[in-house]
Write a protein that binds this DNA or RNA. Structure first.
Lengths: 205, 205
DNA sequence: GTCTATAAATCGATAGAC
DNA sequence: GTCTATCGATTTATAGAC
């Protein structure tokens, strides 16, 4: 499809700037503490102008979530087709941890009902979420068949456990401690996620 | 020390009722979505009366956190002295997961600064937190010496990983799925926490 | 200490001029 | 579409009678 008129492109660029601000503020303070005034000030436009682009605060958050889901889908798609499923899962999880440590992972409260309604009502959101879940789910089954992930674990458990790394508080705590750099933190959390806390007997790679 | 006059005991009972309500509302909706009006209505007293007992909304939340920390310290103290360190760590983590699944684990946003200030300013909170952390930390070192926890892992990482189970979103997701009961969920999450997702070779118990 | 009533501040959302 | 100005609702916190 065409990229649209010059005017439409300008609109698109502005909306990207808005979503970028929302994304960062959502990562910093969360949905409840983020105010629309703040978003407007951060973008550099008036609040009323913001509402010409997005109908509500919930719509702003939903747009940021769609954006991060789209990036996730890109990361998933970028994995080499011939790589082992377990390595692809590790790579995507690693990416999520890096984004979170960079302070760019928007996090939503799982309790806010108005926000849940807005998200579940957005096909762009639910479709992307299902797409990413399906692709990761296929990798999980493959990794279990490969003997790389414990076959006795339900696929849901594995999927949720990986998704949860995006809002894991452990990386932030470790970073606050100041004893480790981001790369070390990512490696350590990835390690506890896949290998657990227990001492492992050495294994064939 | 004496239990105080009858009047003081009544006061104590009422404050316990308040903290009980706050604890449940905090678990249900989180700090930001919990309103003081709601707490007052739930306890069955007027909001102004609530402020005679606690100086602010933050003080209410802090009292609930002190309460759950006290319970944690009790659970820690209740572990048999001759048990293996790894089993004691598992038992305490299991307890935290059960409380969370029961909807009784108060959760605080790590971003709210006014709340952070109130908590860090409360000696009752920080002292208990340090006490529990120290006791768990000693068990972690012991479990590493026993060869039950990977000795290469920093103690901080293990401690934070266990603490994080109290606000892990995975149990809630699994419960929402409806395919597992609470006991199964606790066992599965405990398993991924200590043993990871990877397929493990069978081990000597 | 408990109540009713209200102050004081914040926030989401909108009106209306340009 | 962008702005200024403001509404209406919500929320924390308090005043003052009893």
């Amino acid at each position: 499809m065409a990229r649209g008129s010059f005017r439409e492109q300008l609109l698109r660029v502005r909306e990207d700037a808005i979503i970028e601000s929302v994304n960062r503020l959502l990562a910093e303070k969360g949905f409840d503490l983020m105010t629309v005034d703040e978003v407007a000030a951060d973008v550099g436009i008036a609040k009323a102008s913001l509402y010409k682009h997005f109908a509500s605060k919930e719509a702003l958050a939903a747009a940021a979530m769609v954006r991060v889901l789209r990036k996730s889908a890109e990361v998933v798609a970028a994995q080499p087709a011939d790589a082992r499923a377990i390595d692809k899962l590790r790579a995507v999880t690693r990416w999520a941890l890096q984004v979170q440590l960079a302070g760019e992972m928007p996090t939503l409260p799982s309790q806010n009902s108005s926000l849940r309604a807005e998200l579940l009502g957005s096909a762009a959101y639910t479709d992307l979420l299902m797409q990413v879940s399906d692709e990761l789910g296929a990798w999980i089954e493959r990794a279990q068949a490969d003997g790389d992930i414990e076959p006795a674990l339900p696929g849901e458990l594995v999927l949720y456990t990986l998704f949860a790394r995006a809002c894991d508080p452990v990386p932030g705590f470790l970073k606050a401690g100041g004893r480790f750099d981001d790369a070390q933190i990512v490696d350590m959390v990835l390690g506890t996620c896949f290998d657990g806390l227990r001492r492992r007997p050495e294994r064939a790679s």
